[in-house]
Design a protein around this nucleic acid. Structure first.
Length: 441
RNA sequence: CGGGGCAUAGCGCAGCCUGGUAGCGCAUCUGGUUUGGGACCAGAGGGUCGCAAGUUCAAAUCUUGCUGCCCCGACCA
């Protein structure tokens, strides 16, 4: 993409309504624009990042054996009356009437709908276990939306739902999601800590929140430093491996404010290992047994041919919250640097030439060369000053840069990591390097 | 919902107290000069001053009502 042909409205000053770093940066880097309180449009750059994050989530959910589908944003009130949550959910739920005066709602979550789909189409224990998920926009009419896309009313969520015959099997499904979440956040270069959590309005008795450590987070976090050393890289989705990884985490103390107990913390964690910091909640998983299957009569035949209520769990990741979370966790006051897995472009080419001159031609040349080899580059071919280009790209945060100026030889290019030292390379070497970094064939 | 604040050009702001032809910086457009960390000169375009009513010869400015947005609290991916 050539910057001169792209839609990237960059702001030099912070809009006054943005109070936290990620909100300011997302507005300034032209990622989002607000359309109403807690409701945002995603501009091309932000949308590209959002889609990449979505893809990381999708791939790891698939690896865990979950199957993707897509449910609508608008739901009928009927099923919510069946589960008893139509009255229970409160004002957070946006209620709508259609032209025939039928009660509809903009889905804040999908337990009812997925339960209806499942019970209508699955009749045998032989189809179990099964985990279904979708990545869809949700609406929760928050009392006070704030912090940009961090706490907004309309947001993109990945929500999975597990169906099992017994509680034991359901706990295994829970562990699959537990590991999948850890791997997703690892791939996004985020430090996520699972915390025992309250089950909230969704209900159930087994639940973890996934908290990303970030100075500017909203939740207080108390844990053991060693918990950060646990690696998931040697774990797969076999039962043995899942049991091992969940056991590893159980050994360490970790709690947010609601569950924090000073006495316990000090008893269980050595002084030198105590970590109390801030975090952002990005995921929440629940096992809730028969909470929905009973009132909605979701059953399958077991081996004896008898109807048995399904054991269910649900698992959410705030996908649209993640771009902001990554910024909060990684921005260092000077520049942004996106993880390799979600960077909007592989490399930025900053041309210090002027339309049509030698430097400009050289820039166009390497841009076309990389493009023809599947490298997604953005070429800044505008007539801005060099200083201004550097500043803009510090803001946008593409991890690698190629700087094309008049100071180098005809076949030489300056290549650098955004926060690293420059090296002088030929274009073939740059291609080789980028292919290696991004694992492109 | 309780408490506080704001609304003037795309963004940041001044003007309001004390009513009299709407301004500044950045951004945008034209021409030229520049080019390795937010360049310079000259010129140009862009605003029913959030909406409505009232007071007045005259309202961005005073009065009243409404709407929107932001901040602090409870809620949440």
């Amino acid at each position: 993409m050539k910057l001169s042909e792209y839609f990237l409205p960059i702001l030099k000053e912070n809009p006054s309504e943005a109070k936290i770093k990620s909100h300011q940066l997302m507005l300034r880097a032209g990622m989002i624009r607000q359309s109403a309180s807690g409701i945002y449009s995603w501009l091309p750059l932000g949308f590209k990042i959002l889609k990449k994050i979505e893809q990381v989530v999708r791939e790891e959910q698939n690896r865990a054996g979950a199957i993707e589908l897509l449910m609508p944003t608008i739901q009928s009130a009927e099923i919510w009356k069946e589960s008893g949550r139509y009255d229970g959910y409160g004002k957070e739920m946006l209620r709508i009437k259609d032209r025939h005066d039928r009660d509809l709602l903009y889905g804040p979550t999908n337990e009812e709908l997925i339960t209806e789909i499942f019970r209508d189409n699955v009749k045998s224990y032989k189809s179990l276990p099964m985990i279904l998920y979708h990545i869809q926009w949700k609406f929760r009419d928050e009392i006070r939306p704030r912090f940009g896309v961090m706490r907004c009313r309309e947001f993109l969520m990945k929500d999975s739902y597990s169906f099992d015959l017994t509680e034991d099997e359901a706990r295994l499904s829970y562990k699959k999601m537990f590991l999948s979440y850890l791997k997703i956040f690892e791939k996004l270069e985020l430090k996520a800590i699972p915390m025992i959590a309250d089950t909230g309005p969704i209900g159930g008795d087994l639940s973890h929140e996934f908290i990303i450590l970030a100075e500017t987070g909203e939740s207080n976090v108390y844990t053991d430093k060693d918990i950060l050393k646990i690696s998931t890289s040697n774990h797969d989705y076999s039962k043995k491996s899942l049991d091992e990884i969940t056991e590893k985490f159980k050994k360490y103390y970790s709690a947010t404010d609601e569950k924090f107990n000073k006495q316990d913390f000090e008893n269980k964690v050595e002084q030198k290992n105590r970590l109390s910091t801030k975090g952002i909640e990005v995921g929440h998983i629940f096992y809730f047994g028969e909470k929905y299957s009973k009132p909605m009569n979701a059953v399958v035949n077991n081996k004896e041919g008898k109807n048995t209520f399904l054991h269910m769990g649900s698992y959410g990741i705030g996908v649209s919250r993640l771009p902001a979370t990554i910024i909060e966790a990684k921005f260092n006051d000077k520049f942004m640097k996106w993880p390799l897995s979600v960077t909007p472009f592989h490399v930025a080419i900053l041309s210090f030439g002027k339309t049509g001159d030698e430097t400009d031609i050289k820039s166009q040349n390497i841009y076309n060369f990389l493009k023809s080899h599947n490298i997604d580059a953005i070429l800044d071919d505008t007539n801005e000053s060099p200083a201004s280009k550097f500043k803009n790209f510090d803001l946008i945060g593409i991890p690698y840069q190629i700087v094309v100026g008049s100071k180098l030889g005809k076949d030489d290019f300056e290549f650098k990591e955004i926060d690293g030292d420059k090296e002088i390379l030929k274009k073939e070497d740059i291609l080789k390097k980028l292919k290696n970094i991004y694992k492109i064939d």
